[in-house]
Amino acid sequence: MKILLTCCIGMSTSLLAETMRQSAIEQDRDDTIDVLDIEKAEEVIDQYDVLLLAPQLKHMYKRLVEDYGQTIPIAMIDNKSYGTLDGTKVLKDTIEMVNEHR
């Protein structure tokens, strides 16, 4: 699965992405997990299967769903998993969400 994570300039989210990659390797999954700042993310959004937003971008969620909701499932990462850098839970939630979406 190709997962795109985004936050303001992509710094804090890259910490979470690292734990997600670890988790994917442990589960023998072959996921691509990329991090981009929000401006670049909007340019390449159609190359991914799912877009995850850092919680501090919650004011952008509505607009992004309006603009890209038809193309790609979009979800907010929940505060707790984001703060504790719980990549395993975020990965699990994401896979479930994308499967439901299909």
């Binding site: 501090q56 505060n79 703060g83």
Partner: peptide, 21 residues
């Protein structure tokens, strides 16, 4: 968990983990 990121100016683990929100 948040100490090292904070030294580099990244606050999110504490902001959302503690949480401060």
């Amino acid at each position: 968990l948040g100490l090292l990121p904070a030294i580099f100016g990244i606050s999110e683990p504490v902001v959302f983990g503690l949480p401060l929100v």
